[in-house]
Amino acid sequence: MANIQATGATLHQQILNEIENRIVSGEWAPGFRLPFEVDLAESYGVSRMTVNKVLTQLAKAGLIERRKRSGSFVAQPQVQSAILEIHTIAAEVRSMNQAYSFTLQSRSIRKAGPFDRAAIEVSAETRLIQLRCVHFAGDMPFCTEERLINLDTVPEAEEADFSATPAGEWLIAQTPWSAAEHKISAVAADERVSELLDVPVHTPCLVVQRRTWNGSGPVTSVRFTYPGDKHAIVATFTPASA
């Protein structure tokens, strides 16, 4: 892999510097899987313990992610989103110069239950679309999405193909909103979120819940769950006038 030169730096530091340079330069892009420890050790002519210490230091610096049974991957850069604006997930991912994709996990239509009525403020007879999706940055999961759409307000959503176009993108294009609410919280990943986001159970996650309305009533309620170390929320504001 690399020709380690005889310098004043230790082998550990030289290997660390080389791998870090590959990541920072973009040679190893976000999502790239590093060679396994045994292969790195053989390539550099050092012990696995030395390589393990290097990878541990890179993980602590936030440059790589280490996953059980999968290996080590170059970490995705943290993305920031503004809570006073509504952007699509695709726009967030592309702002990091990453390829965007998504998968629709499930779609169903049903009448609102007690939990739904609290989430989206509709009556018991209201028909809702429920969607569950996973969004990706490159090959790595970026966030999960759980969404309710009010068919009384947006009846045309019933015929929309949300496996081809993400619901958030479709709604922004089709249904202008007049009011929005964001709620931000932190949770530990349960088994389902752990599997979908490919993170260990109990990993800290950032949850952004959003509700929007237009002149006809509630439009949608959506919950996005991000790995906590990959997302930040930013609010920009000015002092209120006296």
Rank of each mutant, 00 (worst) to 15 (best):
A124K: 15
I120R: 00
D139G: 09
D116V: 05
L128H: 07
R117C: 08
D152H: 15
Q130Y: 13
F115D: 13
T126R: 05
A119P: 00
C133L: 09
P141L: 13
R127T: 06
E125N: 11
I129V: 14
E125R: 15
G113Q: 11
I149K: 00
I120C: 04
A137R: 08
R132I: 06
S123F: 08
R127F: 09
L131N: 02
I129Q: 04
R117E: 14
H135T: 08
L151G: 05
E125T: 15
F136N: 06
P141A: 04
A137F: 14
L148H: 01
A119E: 11
I129N: 04
V154G: 01
L148G: 03
L148N: 02
L151N: 10
A137T: 05
S123H: 09
V122H: 05
I129M: 12
A112M: 04
A137H: 12
E121W: 09
D139L: 07
A137L: 10
L131R: 03
A137P: 11
A118Q: 13
I149S: 01
C133N: 08
L148F: 14
A119V: 00
R147D: 00
I120Y: 02
C143Y: 04
P114Q: 10
L151E: 08
R127H: 09
E146D: 15
E125A: 15
I129A: 06
G113K: 09
D139E: 14
R147I: 11
R132A: 15
F136T: 01
T153F: 05
A118S: 11
I120K: 03
C133Y: 01
C133F: 00
R117W: 07
T144K: 04
E145I: 06
L128K: 02
E146L: 13
F136G: 04
A137C: 07
D139Q: 14
E121F: 10
S123W: 03
I129L: 12
A112W: 04
A124P: 01
H135K: 13
E121D: 10
R132F: 07
R147A: 09
A118C: 08
D152F: 09
D139N: 05
T144C: 08
F142E: 07
M140I: 10
